[in-house]
């Protein structure tokens, strides 16, 4: 059994915490424990997951209250030390609110909750969360959210592209990034991004809900496996490897 130990943070209102736990423990047979949002100094974790759900009911703004949970200071420190932090859906929104990732979430363009299977293209497989993917590989994952319309100002977006921070983009099954493939109006079809250092990753789709063939897709497993592989390969390689080059040419598809 792998020595890597995952922590799934439970905020009041998290509801995909049990799903992440199940995938890691039962499907990947990895050590995993819940971390209660009030814990200030949890010990012995190698990777953290901020799961989906409705932390604090999303009552003020998604993730806006959860970022003040006592555990979040630990999450910030953990990330600064290079630890892997994965935020899924509401977890992604919390990472945006606390500034570990750039940008913000707006309400879906259709102004409605959207639950459906979509496709995303892996635009950067050089990070710890997508290392098991082929370049440009298309994953079938479900989205289920009200606020997944990612936005970031133009200058930052440019920088993010240059640094390879745009990791997943909504695409067709064939991997073409089109407007029709975008379920929420997210800028540039962005579905998942990482920080500059590549150790914090947020995505709107739910890999934990698509990690078994019987659930319609097991593509989500790739995210967890990538993290595991990266950790098992040895020492952290923060920001290591060669710089990713954003393929500008693919932009044209959006206007097609």
């Amino acid at each position: 059994m792998s020595k890597v130990r995952f922590g799934v943070i439970v905020f009041p209102g998290s509801n995909c915490d049990r799903d992440c736990y199940y995938v890691l423990k039962d499907l990947l047979q990895v050590k995993v424990d819940y971390i209660w949002h009030q814990e200030e100094k949890p010990k012995g974790f190698d990777c953290l997951i901020l799961p989906g759900g409705f932390s604090y009911g999303d009552y003020l703004r998604c993730g806006a209250i959860a970022r003040f949970s006592p555990v979040m200071e630990f999450v910030q420190d953990f990330a600064e030390q290079g630890g892997l932090v994965l935020g899924i859906c509401n977890g992604f929104q919390i990472l945006l609110e606390c500034g570990l990732l750039p940008g913000a979430m707006l309400r879906n363009q259709g102004l409605k909750f959207v639950c459906q299977f979509i496709y995303v293209r892996v635009d950067n497989n050089q990070i710890p969360f997508t290392g098991a993917a082929q370049p440009g590989q298309v994953l079938q994952l479900p989205v289920k959210h009200n606020e997944g319309n990612y936005y970031v100002e133009e200058e930052t977006l440019k920088e993010m592209k240059r640094r390879g921070q745009i990791v997943l983009r909504y695409s067709t099954k064939e991997g073409v990034v089109t407007r029709e493939a975008n379920p929420n109006g997210a800028l540039d079809n962005i579905a998942g991004i990482c920080n500059e250092r590549k150790n914090v990753f947020g995505l709107m789709p739910h890999p934990e809900n698509s990690s078994e063939p019987i659930l319609g897709s097991q593509d989500g497993l790739l995210i967890f496996k990538s993290m595991l592989q990266y950790m098992e390969d040895g020492e952290f390689r923060y920001g290591g490897g060669e710089e990713f080059r954003y393929e500008e040419g693919r932009e044209d598809d959006l206007d097609a």
């Binding site: 409605k112 639950c115 289920k144 809900n209």
Partner: peptide, 25 residues
Amino acid sequence: RQYDQLVETNTIGLPGADAGVVRIK
């Protein structure tokens, strides 16, 4: 589409067919 059909990772029969199906882990 406005309902979360997947949380709890048990839904092996989605809405839109004769009946919804959940597996028992």
